[in-house]
Every structure is written in C-alpha cells, then in structure tokens.
C-alpha cells in the first residue's frame, strides 16, 4: 500500500511544472494556482491507491485539480468574494509577448487563450498543450467525447481569429457550417 503513496509522490514531484501550468491556465493567477496545486497534491496522496498503474497519471491529476477548482469557484461565488481571477493577466504575461513592440490589433496567442471561455480553454489546454487524447480529456472533464470535439473546434476558431492564425480569410468564407 505504501508503495502506491511512494509512487504517486515521486510522480507528483516530476509533474509539478505541468500541474502548475494547468492550474494557472484555469484560474489565471499564480498565487491561487499554487494553492490549488498544493491542495491537489494533498488529495492525490490521500487517494493514491485509487490511481491505476498503466493509466495516465497526468490525466488523473488534472481531473483532481480541476474538480477542486470548480468547488472553490462555487464557494467563492456563494460567499460573494470579489476576486480578480477573471483577469487572466498571468497567462499572457508568461510568454513575455505582451511587451513585444509590434502589436497591432491582433492579440498574442497567450492572450487569446486567456480570453477563451473557461470550457473552451480547458479543452484546448488538455488536448493541444498537454497532449491528452480526446477520450482522456473527456474523462478528465466528465463530458462526452463529442462535447470535447465541438468545444475544441470552437476554441481553435476563436484562437485563430483573435491571434490572426487564420490562413486566408477569403477562403474561410467558403467554409460552410462553421459559424454557430
């Protein structure tokens, strides 16, 4: 039994940078994210036996952390806590792109990701950044795989538009059934 705890502990230590990145992208502020990471580690260790060897440790941890975050948001909401967590300045500041000089009207990719609706951003992070499969992301988020795909597609369209990644606007008009 204590092998499970030891195993999870070791994996956790190596996984902290990724876990923290995901936390920052969820809550948009480093201090909140660090508390969240700590709480997630605590919970993971308390339930180390539940981790099934052979399954993805990162997906398991992301799920634990995200569930904690949802609870926290609701607590704060009901308690009327006014917080600045809606500003995801930390996300954009991270890349240093904000300071780049030639900024026209387009946003940096990091800013654009920060501006996505929560449910789109988390899917984008899990699949495109953390490289989970659609199935794994669906399990982390407890949503059907079809929802993962529709949110992910919307996230990437929004990101492409906001950050100017769309290759040719002329062509995009030809696309059908894209604007919901």
């Amino acid at each position: 039994m204590s092998n499970a705890v030891k195993d999870v502990g070791e994996r956790l230590t190596a996984f902290l940078p990724n876990l923290r990145r995901f936390a920052i992208s969820l809550c948009g502020a480093r201090d909140v994210a660090d508390d969240l990471v700590q709480a997630a580690c605590e919970r993971a260790l308390a339930s180390a036996e539940r981790f099934e060897p052979g399954t993805r440790f990162d997906a398991w941890m992301f799920r634990i952390l995200r569930n904690l975050w949802i609870d926290q948001v609701r607590r704060q909401k009901t308690a009327g806590v006014q917080d600045d967590i809606s500003e995801r300045h930390d996300l954009a500041g991270a890349s240093g792109e904000r300071e780049a000089e030639a900024r026209l009207t387009l946003k940096t990719v990091a800013e654009a990701i920060g501006d996505l609706p929560d449910e789109q951003r988390e899917v984008l992070l899990l699949v495109c950044v953390e490289e989970l499969s659609y199935r794994e992301a669906a399990d982390v988020l407890d949503i059907p795989i079809g929802t993962v795909m529709s949110r992910l597609a919307r996230a990437r369209k929004a990101l492409g538009e906001a950050a100017g990644i769309t290759t040719t606007t002329a062509r995009s008009r030809v696309m059908k059934g894209v604007n919901e």
Binding site: P17, N18, R20, R21, I24, S25, L91, A94, S95, G96, E97, T108, V109, A110, I113, L124, L125, V127, C128, V129, R156, L159, G160, A163, I165, T167
Partner: peptide, 14 residues
C-alpha cells in the same frame, strides 16, 4: 497551426 501555437505560447509557463 492553432495546436502548435497554443503549445508554444504555453511553453514559458512550463
């Protein structure tokens, strides 16, 4: 490209 760009943009956090 969005997949690639997202990964690059989030790399500094890592």
């Amino acid at each position: 490209e969005t997949r690639h760009a997202a990964k690059i943009a989030m790399q500094p956090l890592l």
